[in-house]
């Protein structure tokens, strides 16, 4: 009962016979099969374990670091997937050039809904691959959809889709829209003509008075190709408007467009 509480205490055992007590304990300690404390060298298994961990670390780092690129967010991708290129397209081919640039626009603005494979989501987002709307002779209707968005039901490849697509009039310029249209018209097995920024620009000008999204009923009034205005629209044709706008100076043009934008 006397030595337990705190051994700095001057209990009977400690004061007179400290050496003996320590010898006694040392003898007890030696009897144990344990190795001498504190001097235990690094176990070989520990070393092997660390080596295995280091090997794993190197493997994992090279496999899942997205090539250590600052713009790569998917860990499994070492190099970004090459943009799908129309068969036979050469480097100088304007279609493949537009497709390459359009792929970037598509990835950021379109693929969340229409999916990277262009197949959309059943019932909600219509497919673009093999879609009769995309493969139409001219870009008149799809360019309008991209510019102002689309709302309400639409029939694509015999199935009905009903959701809303937002407008890209303010976020994409003519060149970006033209490239992305060329991309969707020439990917996933699609094959259709190049869309030029000028065509998109004309449609943009011609529909600048439209603020709400398109509906299928309205779109069907627009001819599939050519520069004609939708039926029922004011007499002013886009071509005429384009001619009129060409006469303005850049500054005047800008202010007109800004006014129209309001």
């Amino acid at each position: 009962m006397s030595v337990h509480s705190d051994n700095r205490g001057q209990s009977g055992l400690d004061s007179g016979e400290a050496t003996d007590v320590r010898d006694l304990h040392a003898a007890i300690l030696r009897e144990r099969p344990d190795p001498i404390e504190g001097r235990e060298p690094l176990n070989l298994w520990v070393v092997a374990f660390i080596a295995a961990l280091l090997f794993w670390a190197g493997t994992y780092l090279t496999q899942y670091s997205g090539g250590f690129r600052s713009d790569e967010f998917a860990e499994r991708q070492i190099n970004p997937a090459p943009a799908p290129v129309a068969a036979g397209g050469g480097a100088e081919d304007p279609v493949s050039k537009a497709v390459k640039e359009g792929a970037i626009v598509f990835a950021t603005s379109c693929s969340p809904c229409h999916q990277a494979d262009g197949n959309g989501v059943s019932g909600q987002f219509p497919p673009l691959a093999a879609s009769e709307w995309v493969l139409a002779e001219g870009p008149n209707r799809i360019a309008r959809i991209v510019l102002n968005g689309l709302s309400g039901p639409i029939q694509v490849k015999g199935s009905e889709y009903n959701n809303a697509m937002n407008a890209f009039r303010d976020s994409l310029d003519d060149r970006q829209i033209a490239n992305v249209l060329t991309y969707i018209r020439n990917s996933w097995g699609n094959k259709a003509s190049l869309v030029t920024p000028a065509e998109v620009g004309a449609i943009r000008g011609g529909t600048s008075d439209r603020s709400q999204a398109w509906t299928v009923a309205d779109l069907e009034k627009v001819p599939v190709s050519g520069g004609a205005a939708p039926a029922g629209a004011p007499a002013l044709t886009p071509a005429a408007l384009k001619e009129a706008l060409k006469k303005l100076s850049p500054d005047e043009l800008k202010s007109v467009l800004q006014d129209v934008g309001k």
């Binding site: 705190d6 051994n7 700095r8 400290a18 304990h25 007890i28 300690l29």
Partner: peptide, 13 residues
């Protein structure tokens, strides 16, 4: 140290 050597448990209350 000498005051609290190896082999002696403390705090056994």
């Amino acid at each position: 140290d000498e005051e609290e050597p190896v082999g002696r448990a403390t705090d056994q209350i």
